[in-house]
Design a protein around this nucleic acid. Structure first.
Lengths: 224, 224
DNA sequence: CGGCATCTGATTGTCTGATAATCTATCACC
DNA sequence: GGTGATAGATTATCAGACAATCAGATGCCG
């Protein structure tokens, strides 16, 4: 039986601000009530309120300006990536689950991509360009960055923004696995990306799916 | 020329704490200096120090326990996935994107569920129990709750924790769509859940996939 | 002696009241 | 019309204080 403890005021407040943003359909730049107003609304001290807003601000979700007030931001994936990459040792995720999740997510969007590729030729050019850049990568950092960019572009090409956001998050946890790729494996990665785009362009979703699955699962052996 | 402003104390402190963690090679559970000590070290008030530590705590990098002190935390996907609710990609998602995302996610896990069902009979019983409860729902609130529970159990049955967390997130945004389900449509929902479980139990993943897709997409007509 | 209850000390959680810093809008002056 | 000063609003940070929680130590009872 777990100890019953008072929930932290700041956590409840952060959660309520989240709900307020969603309910009011607020977007980046929209004004929020002032710290004094929010504190009065929640019946707490302004400093406790600030603990919640500073937490949200750390991720870019809320922005504050002295003398002006609070506004809605947008979660800043770059900032998040930076903070989390700094603490790779604290990232807690099961490698097999990451691989399986990525396979489900990325193969799941392939039918959408193939359909949209027919309507919008810039999708194929974009992906092919990324493959060529990937082929030219000369250091691990660039190679990783271009690998991430390709996979993100796949998700983006689906037009499904929720999956793009989640894919970004999966990549943060996946980062350290990429760092163990040997240079000898870079070429195989490039050829995989190439084949995936080829199959998609020909409308062969099942072949693209098999190739993408193989590509993502290729990390498996190295992580055992 | 950008305005020069005083850097925020809390951001500087958060950064220094992060460096301390890395330099001392600290891992999850390791003790950090107390709030009072850190405040003295940085020559700032304890409350300003807390603004920094609460920000780090929001990400899981730091954990605090009343009466005990601060420790290094760990960064888990569940927490971060929750924070994604502030992501523009989710906030701006239209109903079609939510439907498509759910289809990809939930049909994607079905092969994993079918496989695990063979190894663990409690999965099937659990799902069947939820279908029976669903059949008995007498008010909209219960009906919705049981619908959510069934779908969450599907994701849980896959054993893929990242996708369970993401599914929870999608449900938050999907909630308002469920509320427009007419009572006349409840029975169809129950029969869908029933058929999905039947097909899974027989190992017919493709049939289960088609049924689940149809079930989720059934929201589409109502949302036009 | 072992288990349970109580107490103590340490630390985080939250508060009140206050001043400093920053921003925007308005007004006065040239 | 442009520039500088001022006022008001709001966030940034502080000091001092009490409340809540936890771990460890101690005492009591069977």
């Amino acid at each position: 039986m777990k100890t019953l403890r008072r929930p932290k005021v700041r956590d409840q407040v952060a959660s309520q601000i989240q709900q307020y943003i969603v309910e009011q359909k607020l977007g980046p730049g929209d004004r929020l009530p002032t710290e004094a107003q929010l504190a009065a609304t929640f019946g707490i001290s302004r400093l406790s309120l600030r603990e919640a807003t500073k937490s949200l601000e750390f991720l870019g979700i809320v922005e504050s300006k002295t003398g002006v007030g609070l506004t809605v931001g947008s979660i800043d994936m770059e900032r998040l990536t930076e903070h989390l990459s700094f603490h790779a040792g604290l990232l807690d995720a099961d490698s097999q689950q990451l691989i399986d999740s990525r396979v489900i997510l990325e193969t799941g969007v392939l039918p959408h991509i193939a359909r949209r590729m027919k309507e919008d030729s810039s999708i194929e050019s974009r992906l092919r360009e990324l493959v060529e850049q990937f082929r030219s990568a000369r250091d691990l950092k660039s190679w990783i960055e271009l690998d991430v960019r390709f996979h993100r572009s796949l998700l983006e090409a689906s037009g499904l923004q929720p999956l793009v956001a989640f894919g970004d998050l999966l990549h943060i946890f996946f980062q350290r696995f990429r760092e163990s790729v040997k240079k000898a494996g870079w070429k195989a990665g490039v050829e995989s990306h190439d084949r995936i785009v080829d199959e998609l362009a020909k409308g062969r979703v099942e072949a693209a799916t098999a190739e993408l699955r193989k590509h993502i699962e290729s990390h498996k052996e190295r992580l055992s």
